[in-house]
Design a protein around this nucleic acid. Structure first.
Length: 873
RNA sequence: GCGGGCGUGCUGGAAUGGUAGACAGACCAGACUUAAAAUCUGUUGGGGCUUGUCCCCGUGUGGGUUCGAGUCCCACCGCCCGCACCA
């Protein structure tokens, strides 16, 4: 568009008028695009910097949370560009998943058409934000070019033994005859059919992430730039435990069942056992239900809860007495009853436990319900009067490093910690041939099979003669067929007329494709690597991966703290093992930042029937300290800081905000006020304030030329000192993700610049620096001001300002004086005044002398140089 | 239920264990204006009196460590995130 350029050139010579985001923003977006400013290029003469925000699901609409997430990444990317880095800042789409199939079912749109049209919409919205993204690297995970490479890696993993098949349970809807996701199960019923769900076993594909349990745990220690909370969550999720595995012998068990193998992390409580519990899915439970109709009914009932761990844990603890007993290994005359219990998971340990009610609250409630004995094996080291569990108190469950007194322990001291007692117990049991000490992990292998259409096909073929046969790599990608319908529930790949039918890659006889597709977590577990060479003919390109990996800064929501990040860490290791990533990339994210949500008040009134009626923000006006409906004037209740949710009508559409105020205002606002890791409340008054501030900066800077040539003595130096301090503070803040602090500092500096008496040259320097410091946050405004102030080239490419250390130090420092920790006075002294001089000055103060009777010396005089003085009396 | 996090004025929030409330919003007052908008200036945590460069209280609640705690420790309350097939 040649004419567009002429218009731009012409505008540059117009006198500066009012701040108009609508005029300047498209202009600079086009200028960056034309100059290729944000196209990532390998450049060995510069340090590289890879900044990545978690890519979005293409729901079709940009959410204000996206604006916050991507603005933060953009600030980092633009700052790194200004500090001389070769920056990679890509964007793509996490495009497979359930919502596309739902849209297909509800509206008859093909999932692919729905997804790609959403992508087009969102990309338009993204463009208006002026993000420094390299769009030449864009891809969607549903592009055959992307998922074909994913299939190729699946085959590599399979060859390495990292992928395998086993049985696992799924939520089965018996009416719709389909598998349900956990979120599709509501109160144990299918969301569409309303039928009670059943647990059903299917043969499914798994990745051997558990092979890396120890490694994934141990490597957390080296992730120095990850939040501690995320590392702790991952550590607990991996769940390394030390315990004892042993067996109880079964008295008169059914044929082939003469022992029950259990695993316990508390073998020191073995002599407090009062029952054995097994999972409803335990082989013994399944055997017994064959000739026990009541047990069969109980097990069926247990299997009716969904597969979500949360549901099982929250369900009321129930058991079924099998009538069988086991012998205690240390006292064969002691028999314990065997219960089937709904809270025991077949997936963890051996699917069987012994219950020790005295030292486990869940077991205690179970024991009281079924009238089983409660036997303490240890008691508090000092009696603090709380009731023992035998006497109606709670279960006694101290931390494992707290010393307790053992009353029914194994060899060793009577008083020892849980950890010591566990070690003793394991040793004792092993020497008596009762079980052996083992280390177990809570982390389970990653089940990746999904019985759905809109996902990456698993590239294997089932042959009657050859079994499971990997597809040949030259036949990849195995593409999803386009001609499918969603007029019946389930996976359309299963009833496609031809897609399943293929010759066996091994023997050539007719065979059938696998119709399961991959979990969408697979798609998002390596996209960061693909961005380094998005169109390579192999999953990655060795040179590009070597140059760009690792991600220097990864930014996303804390809701991904466990699964996505753990799976990505596993995938990077598996890819490295298959030659797709360099050794250095097995921990792909050097630094991680987890940002908070954007919230918004909910406006509600009560309907006549008492149910809440939620109102959109645009229906509400705020006046007289209250909130009222614009139509009718009825007062509405305001619920502050609620998570944005479509059903609560409190979603703010960034498109509206940008249309009203411009992208720079939206960006400035989401960065201000709230610390990035915390939630931020969106308020229209906040957006208004951000917009006013940008207009104020515009005025101040465009008025610089009107200032007198020279200012009064000291004014120039005062302004420049403040400027250097601002450069220092803002730079530090951006480096440490303190964007809200950087914004506050820029507010303060703007006021200084506004009120300064300094002359034109100093103001010019200060104004240019202000524009540069704002440029990562409000890039369009900054470019416009930069041009006005005579800056050369784009501000996006201008080197970041550096503070002069000499300008940061003040000669004088004000020290608060505390008396007994309360501030009572202050003195201003030369910065480097010796401590004893400060003490003398402090003791001479009226307030201090008054507080010290008859010139007595203070008990203590604490002088923290440059900070504070505390006189203790 | 289990794991993790958060809690400060009317509101968003600031504060390497060192002056609690920076910087904003809102409100009120003033300047400019015929008027309004815009802009600029100023006040504002609560209470007290002797109105001071004053005193007391105050960071969800209750304890503790420290010369000094919003910050560290313990217990509790509330809210948020995750719980393996939502992404």
């Amino acid at each position: 568009m040649a004419t567009g350029h002429r218009v731009i050139e012409f505008q540059r010579f117009l006198p500066m008028s009012r701040y108009s985001a609508a005029e300047i923003e498209p202009k600079w977006q086009e200028a960056w695009h034309d100059a290729g400013t944000f196209t990532a290029r390998r450049d060995d003469s510069r340090p590289k910097y890879y900044v990545l925000e978690m890519f979005p699901y293409p729901s079709g609409n940009l959410h204000i949370g996206h604006v916050r997430n991507y603005t933060m990444g953009d600030v980092v990317a633009r700052y790194k560009l200004a500090t001389g880095h070769a920056v990679l800042h890509p964007m793509g789409w996490d495009a497979f998943g359930l919502p596309a199939e739902n849209a297909a079912m509800e509206r008859g749109i093909h999932p692919g058409d729905w997804t790609y049209s959403n992508i087009a919409n969102m990309k338009t919205q993204f463009a208006r934000l002026g993000l420094s993204l390299d769009w030449t690297r864009e891809f969607a995970t549903c592009d055959p070019e992307y998922y074909g490479q994913q299939q190729s890696m699946f085959l590599d993993f399979l060859a390495k033994g990292l992928a395998y098949r086993k049985n696992a349970v799924v939520n089965w809807d018996p009416v719709d005859m389909t598998v349900l996701a956990n979120e599709q199960v509501e109160d144990g019923k299918g969301w569409r059919s309303g039928a009670p769900v059943e647990r059903r076993e299917l043969t499914q594909w798994f990745f051997r992430i558990s092979d890396y349990s120890e490694e994934l745990l141990e490597a957390l220690d080296r992730l120095d730039h990850w939040p501690d909370k995320v590392k702790l969550m991952q550590k607990n999720w991996i769940g390394k435990s030390r315990g004892l595995q042993f067996s109880f012998s079964l008295v008169d068990g059914p044929a082939g069942h003469n022992r029950v193998e259990v695993y316990t992390t508390r073998p020191d409580t073995m002599l407090g056992a009062s029952f054995v519990g097994i999972s409803p899915d335990h082989p013994l439970a399944k055997r017994l239900e064959q000739d026990n109709a009541d047990l069969a009914a109980f097990n069926a009932e247990c299997r009716r809860t969904g597969t979500a761990e949360e549901d099982m844990e929250k369900a009321e603890k129930r058991g079924f007495d099998t009538g069988l007993t086991v012998r205690h290994p240390f006292d064969t005359a002691w028999e314990l009853p065997v219960y089937v219990a709904n809270f025991i998971l077949m997936d963890y340990g051996t699917g069987a436990v012994f219950g020790c009610p005295a030292h486990d609250q869940r077991d205690l409630e179970f024991a009281r319900k079924y009238d089983l004995p409660v036997i303490s094996t240890f008691a508090p080291a000092s009696d603090d009067g709380t009731a023992l569990p035998e006497d109606g108190g709670d279960a006694f469950v101290p931390a494992k490093d707290v010393p307790v007194v053992y009353v029914r322990g194994f060899a060793g001291e009577t008083e020892q910690t849980g950890n010591e007692a566990i070690t003793t117990a394991i040793a004792f049991c092993e020497s008596n041939a009762v079980g052996h000490g083992v280390t177990k992990f809570r982390l389970r292998d990653w089940g990746l099979s999904r019985q759905r259409y809109w996902g990456c096909p698993i590239p294997v073929v089932h042959c009657d003669a050859c079994g499971v046969v990997p597809e040949k790599k030259e036949n990849l990608p195995v593409e999803l067929p386009k001609d499918v319908t969603f007029d019946r529930p389930g996976n359309p790949l299963n009833w496609h007329p031809t897609w399943r039918d293929v010759p066996c890659p091994a023997c050539g006889k007719p065979a059938q494709r696998e119709t399961d597709t991959m979990d969408t977590f697979v798609d998002s577990s390596w996209y960061f690597a693909r961005f380094t060479a998005p169109h390579a003919a192999t999953p990655t390109d060795a040179d590009d991966a070597a140059y760009w990996m690792n991600v220097d800064q990864y930014i996303g929501g804390v809701e991904h703290a466990i699964l996505h990040l753990l799976y990505s860490r596993f995938f990077a290791r598996a890819m490295q093992a298959c030659g797709h990533l360099p050794e250095k990339a097995i921990e792909p994210f050097d630094a991680l930042f987890t940002q908070g949500m954007v919230t918004h008040a909910i406006y509600q009134t009560k309907r006549p029937d008492g149910r809440p009626h939620y109102h959109f923000p645009k229906e509400v006006e705020l006046r007289d300290g209250g909130a009222f409906l614009i139509e009718g004037g009825r007062e509405v209740e305001v619920i502050p800081s609620a998570k944005m949710s479509k059903s609560k009508n409190n979603v703010v559409d960034p498109v509206d905000i940008i249309a009203q105020y411009g992208a720079d205002t939206a960006r400035w606002f989401v960065l201000s006020d709230s610390p990035p890791e915390r939630d931020v409340e969106w308020t229209s008054s906040g957006a208004e304030a951000a917009s006013k501030h940008l207009a104020r900066v515009w005025r101040i800077i465009t008025d610089v030329a009107d200032a007198p040539e020279e200012g009064p003595k000291g004014a120039d130096e005062g302004l420049l000192r403040e400027m250097h301090k601002t450069v220092h503070d803002v730079t530090m803040s951006i480096d440490s993700f303190g964007f809200n602090a950087a914004v506050a500092r820029l507010y303060a500096f703007t006021s200084v610049l506004q009120k300064t008496a300094a002359g034109r040259a100093a103001r010019q320097t200060a104004a240019r620096t202000l524009a540069q410091l704002m440029s990562p946050m409000t890039p369009h405004l900054a470019e416009e001001l930069w041009t006005h102030l005579g800056g050369s080239g784009l501000i996006a490419n201008a080197p970041w300002p550096v503070a002069d250390p000499a300008m940061l130090i003040d000669d004088q420092v004000t020290l608060p004086i505390q008396i007994n920790g309360k501030r009572r006075d202050e003195i201003t002294v030369p910065r480097d005044l010796p401590k004893d001089e400060v003490e003398k000055l402090v003791l001479a103060r009226d307030v201090v002398m008054r507080a010290l009777p008859d010139g007595a010396a203070p008990k203590k005089l604490i002088v923290v140089p440059g900070r504070i003085v505390n006189v203790v009396i």
